[in-house]
Design a protein around this nucleic acid. Structure first.
Lengths: 249, 249
DNA sequence: TGGGGTCTCGTACAGTGTTCGAGGTCACTC
DNA sequence: GAGTGACCTCGAACACTGTACGAGACCCCA
């Protein structure tokens, strides 16, 4: 087996070319994000992207080594859209980053696919995790616990938001309403109800609920986020921060 | 726009054919899991799968409507491998399910890709979330909080384990050692170090650390899981369970 | 007038998921 | 035994995909 290398856009250096005319890397990345937002991950092809830019598909390969590099760049573009808050309260900083990341994922549902397959080494991603860790360090976490706590919040945020984004965007793109989807899934739920009656009961509750589904999902996210933050607060060496029951939103 | 339907393997009914000869659905699903484990998500093709079974690619379409259905079935197969614990302590049940799911994801890194794109409506997935919710209900959570708490634990578990599985399996499949990867990433980290020196310091610590990287990742996962469980325990209406500081593993 | 770097792109290759329809193999009935 | 219809397999074809390669175009500078 030949000693392979682990590569990424961020390990090659890249001199920005004269932005005179023709294509530029920034322009290509912007178009990529737009196309992904509009049509989703599996509809992005180099030919379509080229056409959108009024260029041939293979012209893109001058500015970018391959499709994966393009996706890495697009991912970091989304990380860049996460607003980084400034505050003295670590709970506020961490909570705001989590909600910001959630908003970014919901706006760009393809994001988590890229995050799951390619390393996030871009400057904006680094900036995100750095502010998180800085806040946690200031809060009083020590050494490895800083990384652990930061990773825990990011993991929960991504894990909670990704399927939500995938589901809602899949429905929207295919022109299916939420009610239609629930109606279509009813038989499958019915089948499972025999083994787990209490699951069925809660599903019915959800269907007949009068709360706005969007508000419902926000409540669910907040519940988990607040729980995580409270649990982290318990792990602070000296109980410096005791405002554990504040809502983050 | 024509009123589309939201479909899934689990919404169609399926009569298991006579298992006499030729292909069967179970056999195909087993082979799918094997192929995905061995070569990863992007290397699964109907032609390869057919060849592995000694059949033509298009023969599979008699037993399964399309590739997505196949992936749904494979996903539920993995859910079925999660051992469901029996215990009176809700923390033990929830913790064990989380660790079991983590083990399943690490053994089948393609799992989270499917989970992210297709609905998990299979019986084994339902069983998993049902035991989780049953334990949480017994613990004292009420109504929606049961779902919220269950979703929080699953979200954290998936969000924390998925990138870990993706990274380690990508390295293994391409024959790259962990040390080699860290060496390859060094220039990118170096570049970011200028903006965030404290990130660089912790990265160096991690590289030079003498702890086994596997143990390190397990510690990180446990840190977040215990934090989440502690935070959930705080949300129990009457403080029925106060054993908040026990480790789960 | 000549390079030489920078950039575009047509062609080609090996692969993909899936449709269609022709055919083959049974178990059962007349 | 002949015939029928359900069950199952599969070759060919279609419209795609990512990207390697090499031919050319443009522009700046000597």
């Amino acid at each position: 087996m030949p000693e392979q290398r682990f590569t990424s856009v961020w390990t090659r250096e890249h001199k920005p070319r004269r932005a005179q005319q023709g294509l530029s890397r920034e322009q290509i990345v912007r178009a990529t994000v737009e196309l992904l937002d509009a049509e989703g991950m599996e509809s992005l092809s180099m030919r379509k992207l080229g056409a959108k830019l009024g260029a041939g598909a293979t012209s893109l390969y001058w500015h970018v080594a391959n499709k994966n590099e393009l996706l890495e760049l697009a991912m970091d573009e989304v990380f860049g859209a996460v607003r980084i808050p400034a505050s003295d309260s670590w709970r506020e900083v961490v909570g705001n980053v989590a909600w910001g990341l959630r908003a970014a994922i919901l706006a760009h549902p393809w994001f988590t696919f890229v995050l799951g397959s390619l390393p996030a080494l871009g400057p904006n991603a680094m900036n995100c995790s750095a502010t998180l860790c800085a806040a946690l360090a200031r809060a009083g976490f020590q050494k490895h616990d800083i990384d652990y706590a930061g990773a825990a919040v990011l993991s929960y945020t991504v894990g909670a938001t990704a399927p939500e984004a995938a589901y809602t965007s899949a429905l929207k793109r295919r022109g299916i309403t939420m009610e239609q989807a629930q109606r279509d899934l009813a038989p499958a739920v019915e089948k499972v109800a025999r083994a787990h009656p209490e699951v069925h009961a809660r599903f019915q509750e959800a269907v007949e609920s009068t709360i706005d589904p969007l508000a419902h999902r926000q409540l669910a996210f907040d519940f988990g986020l607040v729980s995580m933050l409270d649990g982290l607060a318990m792990r602070l060496p000296k109980s410096a921060d005791m405002s554990s029951n504040h809502q983050t939103h």
